[in-house]
Nucleic acid binder design. Structure first.
Length: 435
RNA sequence: GCGGACGUAGCUCAGUUGGUAGAGCGUCGGGUUGUGGUCUCGAAUGUCGCGGGUUCAAGCCCCGUCGUUCGCCCCA
């Protein structure tokens, strides 16, 4: 059987045009993160299995993680997320760091699961974390950063919705307001997480099954629905609304409003899967009907650094996958045409390869990206190659040009031609570069 | 891990009640000698995902397998 040319299941090949798009997307992420004072870090793609077992949610290690044994018998994981890694790194320098620590990375991550739209086995993820800030100014900053990223792509506020919730508020509602025990609360939180996927009746039926008979008869499920159905914090019952957790959310929404972010809202059904979140959680949804899913999510996790045996550090962070981000940009027509990095394609006329090296070297020394046709084919064919490669500028070098020092530079888009010496060509190309 | 749909030229797809394949785009070549894209003339292209079965005969029917895709589970 012939060898397949397809990449590994759930992973992508990046041909130059794909890589160009990724570079464009990542460049914006880096620019904005750095504009907020975040510094880039990186770490190995392999981690010891232990650091994933230490935190809650072990099933992903068993079922959805690439795990193998190295030749020394060590259990190794191909990292499925960056949070344990960055927590490990912060813990390693716990004492010497200057807080607040603002770090970001765009790691390559792997998870073993059935690929589907927006979720592949291999992906990249912008990870932004701020360590050492205990109050919600950290959350506000991080969400403002997310919003700035969207704006840097040219996205409008109605293209995405920012949803907020507070784990402590959820806990209060389940335990204190509704009076559920540990088991009921846990099961109910998992159910709430799936709320929007279920029919109303199915949701109620499952909630009925979770809570004990006496609580059900006392109307606990109706009470739960009453809380989940609110459109804003103001509609919550006073007992819930006056908790510290609810007021923290309210203050955050005001702070975001003040920062010019109008598409943030309280979402009582927002849970997020992991148990390590300790406070505010947030997700951002694409409002386009074809990509109506969570694009990124994060929140406060104050306990993870402490798992490495040092004093805990309050932390807020989020992860933003490149696959849903690319889907978002595509659906909203936010991706510009991206030509190759090459500024000019040099076509040679006659036996001038050797003599042409001098002006070519001068162009490169001036910082321009110059590709040279080496085919020796007819001029028209060389032009076709430039056209096909998507390089818009062609420079003709032949005997005449070399003897006069005047070169012909053609713009394939406008069909305009100019004649100039090397300095003039550099000038013209630079002008077009910055268009 | 579970369920549905799909898998025909590089790409998008068409292939009638089973009779060993087609279009558009793209690709390649020509329309004379230092100018691409438009136009025009011409050409090539496929073990119809792979393996097996039914049949005189399978792209078409059946089974398996791999892959793609939508959903479930789960969500980093």
């Amino acid at each position: 059987m012939a060898l397949s040319t397809q990449p590994y299941k759930g992973a992508r090949d990046f041909y130059p045009e794909d890589k160009r798009r990724q570079k464009y997307i990542f460049a914006k992420l880096r620019d904005v993160a750095e504009r907020f004072g975040y510094e880039e870090y990186d770490a190995p793609i392999l981690e010891p299995l232990d650091i994933y077992l230490a935190k809650t949610g072990e099933e992903i290690v068993n079922e959805q993680t690439y795990v193998f044994e190295d030749r020394g018998g060590r259990k190794v994981v191909i990292r499925p997320e960056m949070t344990p890694t960055v927590s490990r790194m912060v813990a390693g320098r716990r004492q010497e760091l200057a807080y607040p620590v603002r770090w970001y990375s765009i790691p390559n991550l792997w998870r073993y699961e059935r690929p589907q739209r927006g979720r592949l086995r291999e992906h990249w993820q912008l990870n932004v974390d701020i360590f050492g800030v205990a109050d919600s100014s950290a959350e506000v900053e991080v969400i403002t950063l997310v919003d700035a990223v969207f704006k840097s792509y040219g996205a409008a506020a109605d293209m995405y919705d920012i949803h907020l919730n507070n784990r402590q508020l959820v806990d209060f509602i389940l335990r204190d307001y509704l009076g559920l025990d540990e088991t009921e609360a846990h099961a109910t939180s998992k159910l709430i997480d799936r709320m929007h996927k279920l029919e109303r009746d199915a949701f109620i039926a499952q909630a009925d099954e979770i809570v004990s008979a006496d609580k059900r008869e006392a109307g606990v499920v109706e009470k739960l629905l009453g809380v989940l159905d609110v459109k804003s914090l103001k509609e919550l019952p006073d007992a819930v609304r006056q908790t510290e957790a609810a007021m923290e959310l309210e203050a955050m929404l005001e702070a975001l409003q003040a920062a010019g972010i109008t598409n943030a809202q309280y979402d009582p059904s927002l849970m997020r899967g992991f148990d390590y979140y300790t406070g505010i959680v947030f997700e951002v949804f694409d409002t386009h009907p074809d990509n109506n899913r969570s694009m990124l999510g994060g929140g406060r996790y104050d306990g993870l650094v402490g798992l490495f045996g040092v004093a805990p550090v309050p932390t807020v962070g989020f992860g933003w996958g490149d696959v849903t981000l690319a889907n978002f940009l595509e659906l909203h027509n936010l991706l510009p045409a991206l030509p190759p990095e090459t500024d000019v394609y040099v076509v040679l006329v006659g036996e001038v390869q050797t003599a042409a090296q001098k002006p070519i070297a001068e162009l490169r020394a001036a910082g321009l990206n110059v590709a040279v046709d080496l085919s020796g084919r007819k001029l028209g064919d060389q032009f076709k190659i430039a056209e096909k490669k998507g390089i818009e500028r062609v420079l003709i070098i032949g005997e005449a040009e070399l003897s006069t020092g005047q070169f012909t530079l053609k713009n394939l888009g406008s069909s305009e031609e100019i004649k100039a010496d090397v300095a003039g060509v550099v000038k013209a190309l630079r002008a077009q570069q910055t268009e």
